[in-house]
Simulated assay, not measured.
Amino acid sequence: MSEPTRQSEDEDPGEAAPDPGSGILRVFGRQLKRFRIRAGVERTEMGARLGYSASTIAAYEQGRRVPPPRFIDQADDLLDAGEVLKEMKEEVARAQYPAFFRDAAKLEAEAVELHVYDTHIVNGLLQTEEYARAVFTMRRPLLSEETIDERVQARLARQSTFTRQPLPTTSFVIEESVLTRPLGGANVMRGQLEHLLLCGQRRNVDIQVMPNGREEHAGLAGPFTLIETIEGRRIAYVEAYKHSRLYTERQSVRELEEQYGLLRAQALTPRESLEIIEKLLGAT
């Protein structure tokens, strides 16, 4: 890749209309139905044996809902699908993400280094379930309850990046204003601050807070993520309304790397940052 991939200006990163991700769901659904019929299993029987309603099985077969990984594993075993369904699990999981984020999610899951700057909300990799639900509930245009559930579970699944091997090096610079904005209410924000303290204690995670009172600031253009792959490729992801994109051209990536280096120098140290999070927690 040498050019930035960008989202069409006609697309909305809020509630995506039918997109390429729905194709894999339809393909998976057809395969699921084919194996179910071949095995002579009715939807009601399959649902009862796996703990799902017949209507949910129908939704999976029709490509209207994203089946969780656990269901795919169980269905493959039950229907003796020879791991055909299991082999589709990764692509099916990516369909949970809005279209504009899918390529970035794949790179994130394989990265050896992730460096993130956030200005409006806590990054998805650091969010609690309650905070993530509040974020998606507030999004406009409104998301359906089903879409909110899928997006929350997808966001939580991304957090496995902190425990996979080899451990990726991750760092976050977060604006102090993000930590004082009580999205979802005081209890939700308290849980989120507690979670940040736990994340900040991981060996491979550095969290730095950019104080509101700083007179020098290198990140006024907005949030971004820097990704390094195991092959040594360096990529930048910049998310903005209707213009989210991946940058692979070296000059563009280098400019954001320079910004991030300055941001880390201007922000509080990781230890100082955890201390200020503790103080904010005490004030909630």
Score class of each variant (00 low, 15 high):
Ser2Thr: 10
Pro4Cys: 00
Thr5Met: 03
Arg6Cys: 00
Gln7Cys: 01
Gln7Tyr: 01
Pro13Ala: 06
Pro13Ser: 04
Glu15Cys: 08
Ser22Asn: 09
Ser22Pro: 01
Gly23Met: 03
Val27Asn: 09
Phe28Cys: 01
Phe28Trp: 06
Arg30Asp: 04
Gln31Cys: 04
Arg36Ile: 13
Arg38Pro: 06
Arg38Ser: 10
Glu45Gly: 03
Glu45Trp: 05
Gly47Asn: 08
Tyr52Phe: 14
Gly63Val: 08
Arg70Glu: 15
Arg70Gly: 11
Arg70Lys: 14
Ala75Ser: 13
Leu79Gly: 11
Asp80Val: 12
Lys86Gln: 02
Met88Thr: 13
Lys89His: 06
Glu91Val: 02
Glu91Cys: 03
Glu91Phe: 07
Arg94Met: 11
Gln96Ala: 02
Phe100Pro: 03
Phe101Gly: 02
Phe101Leu: 12
Leu107Lys: 02
Glu108Gly: 00
Glu108Cys: 00
Glu108Tyr: 00
Val112His: 06
Glu113His: 04
Leu114Pro: 01
Gly124Ile: 03
Leu126Trp: 06
Glu129Phe: 04
Tyr131Val: 01
Ala132Thr: 09
Arg133Gln: 11
Phe136Leu: 11
Arg139Ile: 11
Glu145Tyr: 07
Glu146Trp: 07
Glu150Arg: 09
Glu150Pro: 00
Gln153Cys: 02
Ala154Cys: 05
Ala157Glu: 15
Ala157Pro: 02
Arg158His: 02
Thr161Gln: 10
Phe162Asn: 09
Thr163His: 07
Thr163Leu: 01
Gln165Trp: 14
Pro166Phe: 14
Pro166Gly: 13
Leu167Gln: 15
Pro168Lys: 08
Ser171Asp: 15
Phe172Tyr: 12
Ile174Val: 15
Glu176Tyr: 04
Thr180Glu: 15
Thr180Val: 15
Gly185Ser: 07
Met189Tyr: 08
Gly191Ala: 01
Gly191Thr: 01
Gln192Asp: 03
His195Leu: 04
Leu196Gln: 09
Leu197Asp: 10
Cys199Gln: 13
Ile207Asp: 02
Val209Ile: 14
Met210Pro: 04
Pro211His: 08
Pro211Asn: 05
Gly213Tyr: 12
Gly213Cys: 00
Glu216Ile: 12
Glu216Phe: 12
His217Met: 08
Gly219Ser: 05
Leu220Gln: 09
Gly222Tyr: 09
Thr225Arg: 07
Thr225Ser: 06
Leu226His: 05
Ile227Asp: 07
Glu228Val: 03
Glu231Cys: 00
Glu231Ser: 06
Gly232Val: 13
Gly232Phe: 11
Arg233Thr: 02
Arg233Tyr: 04
Arg234Met: 05
Ile235Cys: 10
Ala236Trp: 13
Ala236Lys: 10
Tyr237Glu: 07
Ala240Leu: 12
Arg245Trp: 07
Tyr247His: 13
Glu249His: 15
Gln251Tyr: 10
Val253Pro: 12
Arg254Ile: 03
Glu258Tyr: 09
Gln259Met: 12
Tyr260Thr: 14
Gly261Ile: 04
Ala265Thr: 13
Gln266Val: 10
Glu275Asp: 15
Glu275Tyr: 02
Glu275Ala: 09
Glu275Val: 04
Leu281Glu: 11
Ala283Ser: 10
Ala283Tyr: 05
Ala283Gly: 00
Thr284His: 03
